[in-house]
Structure formats: structure tokens, C-alpha cells
Amino acid sequence: MILEAVMLLVKPGLKSDFEATFKEASKIISSMDGYLSHELHKCIEIQGKYLLLVRWETLESHTVGFRSSTEYQEWKKLLHNFYEPFPTVEHFEEIEI
């Protein structure tokens, strides 16, 4: 399992629109092959800051399968205009402790 972690900074005044649009966009990502689950968290201390966590079966499920799909183009069209600056996406794998 791969955990995609993205810190999202939503432009001022767009919080409500972003949250509503994200609900719609969630249907897109959750339909993808290799998708396991996702969560969106709102920061308490910083207005407009969100943490998106997406669990994928493999790294390629996200970086190849999702990002090269027509569904990703729709995801981008819905969400990418909300962010400033554009977020950095990082991937993590769990370690045994």
C-alpha cells in the first residue's frame, strides 16, 4: 500500500467552493483502479490549508494509472484552480515497527 500525501493551500475566499467541488471530485478518484481510500483534513490553525491522504495499491496506480487517465483531466479541471501555490505530491510506504 502506498500513501499519497498532499498539502493543499486553497486561495482565500474559496474554502466553501473547494469543499463542495472536492466532494464531487471524490467520485472520480474513488472509481480508479488501484484506489483504496482517501481522506481530506482541514487545518485548525491555518485558514485554507488542507491535507489530502490517498491510499493506493501501488505507486503506479497513482502515477501512471490515475495521472494518465481521462478521469484525471476531469479531476484537474475541477480542482487545480483552487490551489496557490500548486501543491507538491509525496508518496510514502509503511514500515514495520
Rank of each mutant, 00 (worst) to 15 (best):
M1V: 06
I2V: 14
L3K: 05
A5F: 09
A5K: 14
M7G: 07
M7C: 10
L8H: 02
L8I: 04
L9M: 09
L9F: 09
V10I: 15
G13A: 11
K15W: 00
S16M: 05
S16D: 13
D17H: 14
D17G: 12
E19T: 03
E19M: 04
A20K: 11
A20C: 07
T21G: 07
F22E: 05
K23N: 05
K23D: 01
K23E: 05
E24A: 14
E24I: 11
A25G: 10
S26E: 13
K27F: 04
K27T: 00
K27S: 03
I28M: 10
S30H: 08
S30W: 04
S31P: 03
D33L: 06
D33T: 09
D33A: 13
D33C: 04
D33F: 00
Y35I: 00
L36K: 08
S37L: 03
S37C: 03
E39P: 01
E39W: 01
H41R: 10
K42T: 15
K42R: 15
C43K: 12
C43S: 15
I44Y: 08
I44T: 03
Q47N: 12
Q47H: 08
G48V: 11
Y50N: 07
L51T: 12
L52A: 12
L52C: 09
L52Q: 12
L53E: 03
L53A: 11
V54M: 09
W56P: 01
E57P: 01
L59C: 03
L59F: 00
L59I: 04
H62S: 06
V64P: 00
V64K: 15
R67I: 00
S68K: 14
S68W: 06
S69Y: 08
S69D: 14
E71A: 14
Y72K: 11
W75N: 06
K76E: 10
K76Q: 12
K76H: 04
K77S: 14
K77H: 11
K77I: 02
L78M: 15
L79G: 05
N81E: 08
F82N: 09
F82H: 10
E84P: 01
E84W: 03
E84Q: 12
E84L: 08
F86A: 11
P87E: 15
P87C: 15
V89M: 15
H91N: 13
F92M: 11
E94L: 13
E94C: 09
E94S: 13
E94H: 11
I95A: 14
I95P: 01
E96Y: 01
I97W: 01
I97Y: 01
